[in-house]
Design a protein around this nucleic acid. Structure first.
Lengths: 198, 198
DNA sequence: TTTATAAAATTAACACTGCAAATTTACTGA
DNA sequence: TCAGTAAATTTGCAGTGTTAATTTTATAAA
């Protein structure tokens, strides 16, 4: 039967409408202003229709994670294209990463702050988030090790350190407005980056 | 008039009942299960009475921050009493800090994740949170500088680094269950701590 | 083309939430 | 005792996520 395939295509298309709507809201209004009715309105469906395609709201919005990661990665790749490999590229990637999550605080909320629904692909998604920054930098850390700039275990420590530092920095700035202005934020970021890569 | 003073005393007492109830819920059920009705029930009042004493719910629960900080500080002080000053004490303080926010994830949520209401003592409270860990360690960093273990600017960098690292670590573990078990968590914490204090 | 059936989408409803205005209760000073 | 004030409560609103029942739409068979 071709019918089954057609159904599948249509179902995926409809799911896509909801996901697209959710992504738009997340980037614009932010995660606080997201709601089932909000998403459904934008997707052109009734709010209850959403539950024919997704287990619950959390399920839907966490499907956006992968898309946003891809978008973020592409942006950073473009921005750091001309940078020299190694430390300098790690620096550029970090700056691009910070920039992205400051530009879209709703996506930061989604990645790090929003509670996930208990069941489902919870573990997979949280691992995706946990390893995201590592994946962005991995090639360059390997490069540093291959060039003898860092020892393997030392590079590993710095990699973890950088990830945790960047996450903490964004959390304070996006969620607690600390430090109070962007200039101070960038100064701290720069200093800490230099400290870790010294 | 003595009446004014009496009123003040009674008002503070009543406020205290609400705050005490909120603190109990935050430590127990956590911030997700907190609600106006929930707090008022426990305090022995109607839920609307709460609004006679607090601007809104957020206002109330962020009044708990100072109390929890004091409690946390006292606990850590006791635990690290016998430690040698300097690096070793910083290590102990960090461990106690991690322990506290893992034991009470609801308090972690309150400190770092929960959105504050826009007006009021927002800035003051967020600064209190931002500087908390720094204040816990400050004496020991100063000690290190005075003993020539670190230079002043170097100590400052490490202090900031430690704060951001610890915050990121707790965020991933408490909110994303990454790493997946406590043993891994403690190993990472230990390694990173050694990296920063090296 | 008409009819039976399955699928998709919607409406209505529930149990919550924070919050505010109106109303009742309790208390204080004359 | 009574009036005025402060405190506490009831009532109500607008919003949330989610589910069940219902209607609408699309599909397959006669």
């Amino acid at each position: 039967m071709l019918t089954e395939e057609k159904k599948e295509i249509q179902e995926q298309r409809t799911k896509g409408y909801f996901i697209q709507a959710a992504k738009e809201i997340l980037k614009g209004e932010g995660i606080r202003l997201i709601s089932v009715r909000n998403i459904a309105d934008r997707a052109g469906y009734s709010y209850a229709t959403l539950y024919n395609y997704f287990k619950d709201l959390k399920d839907l919005i966490f499907l956006c994670v992968k898309d946003f990661q891809d978008e973020c990665e592409i942006t950073i790749k473009e921005e750091t294209e001309t940078r020299a490999r190694g430390k300098e590229k790690i620096e550029g990637i970090t700056q691009g990463y910070l920039k992205y999550f400051i530009q879209y605080p709703g996506i930061f909320d989604l990645f790090f702050l929003e509670r996930m629904s208990e069941i489902g692909s919870k573990q997979k998604t949280s691992e995706l988030i946990y390893t995201f920054f590592d994946r962005l930098c991995q090639e360059e850390w390997d490069f540093c090790v291959s060039k003898g700039i860092f020892q393997a275990d030392e590079a590993e420590s710095r990699k973890v350190e950088l990830k945790l530092m960047v996450t903490g920095l964004l959390l304070f700035y996006n969620n607690r407005r600390q430090p109070a202005n962007f200039e101070d934020f960038m100064n701290i970021a720069k200093n800490q980056l230099a400290f870790i890569l010294r």
